[in-house]
Design a protein around this nucleic acid. Sequence first.
DNA 1: GTTAGCACTCAATCAGTAGGAGTGCTAATA
DNA 2: TATTAGCACTCCTACTGATTGAGTGCTAAC
Lengths: 348, 348
Amino acid sequence: MEQLDDRKVKILQAIIRNYLETGEPVGSRTISKYTDLSLSSATIRNEMADLEELGYLIQPHTSAGRIPTDKGYRLYVDTMMEEKVEEVNTMRDQLTEKSDRIETLLQQVVKLLAVNTNYATMITTPKYRSRKVKFIQLTEVDPTHILAVILLEGNIPKNKIIPVSEPVEKDVVLKLNLILNTFLVGLDLEEINIGIVQKMKEQAGEHTSLVGDILDAVANSMEEEGQIQVYTSGATNLFKYPELTDTATAQNLLFTLEDKQELAELIDNKLDGSGHDDEPKNDIQVYIGGETPIDSMKDCSVVTATYRMDEGVYGKVGIIGPKRMDYEKVVATLKNLMNDLDSIFKNK
Amino acid sequence: MEQLDDRKVKILQAIIRNYLETGEPVGSRTISKYTDLSLSSATIRNEMADLEELGYLIQPHTSAGRIPTDKGYRLYVDTMMEEKVEEVNTMRDQLTEKSDRIETLLQQVVKLLAVNTNYATMITTPKYRSRKVKFIQLTEVDPTHILAVILLEGNIPKNKIIPVSEPVEKDVVLKLNLILNTFLVGLDLEEINIGIVQKMKEQAGEHTSLVGDILDAVANSMEEEGQIQVYTSGATNLFKYPELTDTATAQNLLFTLEDKQELAELIDNKLDGSGHDDEPKNDIQVYIGGETPIDSMKDCSVVTATYRMDEGVYGKVGIIGPKRMDYEKVVATLKNLMNDLDSIFKNK
DNA sequence: GTTAGCACTCAATCAGTAGGAGTGCTAATA
DNA sequence: TATTAGCACTCCTACTGATTGAGTGCTAAC
């Protein structure tokens, strides 16, 4: 890649900084006046022309100032950005309600992120491999309902109310409890095969259909847990940036953010970290404009981070904003958040 | 109120119908040509002038056609709308996944509604009075965690994993189980007062702090259940209607729909049914433009319906669209949905 | 009571103009 | 040789008429 001399770097940096703030094309005069380079606008103009030829800047039209290209932003993010972790204050304190439900926690996190950054945010629930059954507990609730509590590995409780057509006697419940636990404990979804189901039904005698219902509930719970959920927040923040406000762009973006199911798949498949950065620093990925693997976000930048809940159990956080987003702040905020989450999960 | 003669009614109806379709101001010539009234445009013009004076129509500017006022829509909705329940096909079949979790069902419902109507939709979880405790079950999960299953009236199971600093013995768990059930079964949130808590703690002896944790969990569960959740869908549908697309309006609307918590309160407080319609037909309420009690929806119409899950247990469904929404279809769709939901809840 | 005809109004569209920001180029300068 | 001042040029933006067409209101005739 072409090597930029020191002065070009400084000018490019100044232009990008200015554009990040104002969102307006930056002219040579502005740079000449408001930097300590003490160069005339004419000199700056020459340099700008060079930078344009090298692909770091572009002119929206002939007689306008310059704005950074994706390549320009990329250089900025990779080499010119200054860390400012200290300046960002922890969101830890703001996570008031330390609910035990992860979903609630995650929802709080995205919301705080959105409020603090003024961009749109998203977060996925952690992705597990298939969870194993830790134990199952049946309890008679009333004559027509049985409560099945299924505890999955990692202490995830699930419960299902199973309707029964006729009352089930106490000792039958006990017996089924025994059967279920003998056969299922320690298995994950794939390991529960027809053979095992068959054996269980044999042992259950006349209560085969009830066993079937319970197995459905178990399968259901495990699948439910395997599914990645996405929570978003601050989608309307995007209206604050005029370059994203034209109807088509905004509409596409909001549409993508609204359809949680599709979004989950997109994040899972495309933002999987096989990304751009060769040396991942702290697991933070920056996708600029066209680099984004999600079509509707082509006019935006997306910054993602991976949080770890447990060994091998991780989820994604993403921040979506205009290309001229405050990368420094966003990256710092995410780094901080990762730390906060780490310590929260450790204390669990 | 002024009585409209038959011809005026027909003309008004024709104008509204046309405007619902096109969204463009309707001129006299259009009505003269495309209705079976066989009147010249001049006559129509005279009638339109009368209708304007009476407040049913308005001219966006001097030389434009007419569009209905809120009053015009109101008259249309109240007296001129034709039922077309048969034409709307049931969404029942499309509700594939008969999940046992109400949340999932409701999420499916809003989504289907949005897809079928092309408007924005919202639905609340049912609102209960405070639920009573049916039973509590403690189980030791591993040396450092206890699982508390709390079953609330209406067979709503809740569970909480409670961390303990040191292993709790089996007989202690049994004892606590007994204490909790003796004291708490049949009580709702308000009835669990300090006196009761005190007595339980006395009986628990050295395990007071554990009892405290469990009580927190119980309180938490009950509160969680008392909270109304709102699910929305199809917010981006609103972009299909140019009259809602100007940035300010759209932004406000989407913002309101995004903040679920605030939305829940708005629906609970303002759309409580103390509405406009004097003779509620099937619990469906139509709020037109300024009638809407939610400020950000002043440029829209909102149609709500109340679904009943159980005696005294109900939730709200809402459809938000432009004032020129297809009221007939929306009302018919909602009526159908109410029936579908009825039969779904009965089969539970 | 209804209709034809006409003058009138107003939004929308388009072309033309002026102003301003910013550039590229050239020639002078250090 | 690098930098700078100066100037012509480009293009966006905002503003101004002029034109068009849809639709009205009014009047006079049927």
